[in-house]
């Protein structure tokens, strides 16, 4: 596979993945595995998220201050897991990314399905 294509895709995925993670955490704290499963379930397994790519993304978001992490014992559980939680800054970022995403989708939509065609 040509190298250039490969790097392009990763670049695209990174931003998207960050947004998906933030959106998932909007429902409340979750650990890495739960986030992975949630993304997979809600997209009906269309988006195959390689679990491994989740953790670099989570640590990156944490470093930017959009999420915080804490080791907690879940309700009814027996042992600690590392839970991630959205920060106010993370919420703001999600809003920004969502509106950016909408603009992107809308503009791509206008190209793909011009109003006249319908």
């Amino acid at each position: 596979m040509p190298k250039k294509d490969c790097s392009n895709r990763i670049e695209l995925m990174k931003g998207t993945l960050d947004m998906l993670i933030l959106r998932t955490l909007l429902f409340g704290a979750a650990n890495g595995h739960e986030i992975a499963k949630h993304i997979q379930r809600t997209t009906d397994d269309v988006l195959q998220v390689e679990h491994g790519s989740l953790y670099p993304a989570l640590h990156r978001l944490e470093r930017r201050g959009w999420v915080v992490s804490k080791w907690e014992i879940p309700k009814g559980g027996k042992r600690e897991f590392k839970y991630y939680r959205l920060t106010p800054a993370g919420k703001k970022q999600l809003t920004a990314e969502r509106s950016e995403w909408r603009r992107l989708v809308a503009s791509i939509g206008r190209v793909m399905e011009p109003a006249g065609e319908g």
């Binding site: 491994g52 790519s53 953790y55 670099p56 993304a57 640590h59 990156r60 470093r63």
Partner: peptide
């Protein structure tokens, strides 16, 4: 690779 990437994120 995952560990390396996470470290890079640090």
């Amino acid at each position: 690779q995952v560990e390396e990437d996470v470290r890079a994120a640090w």
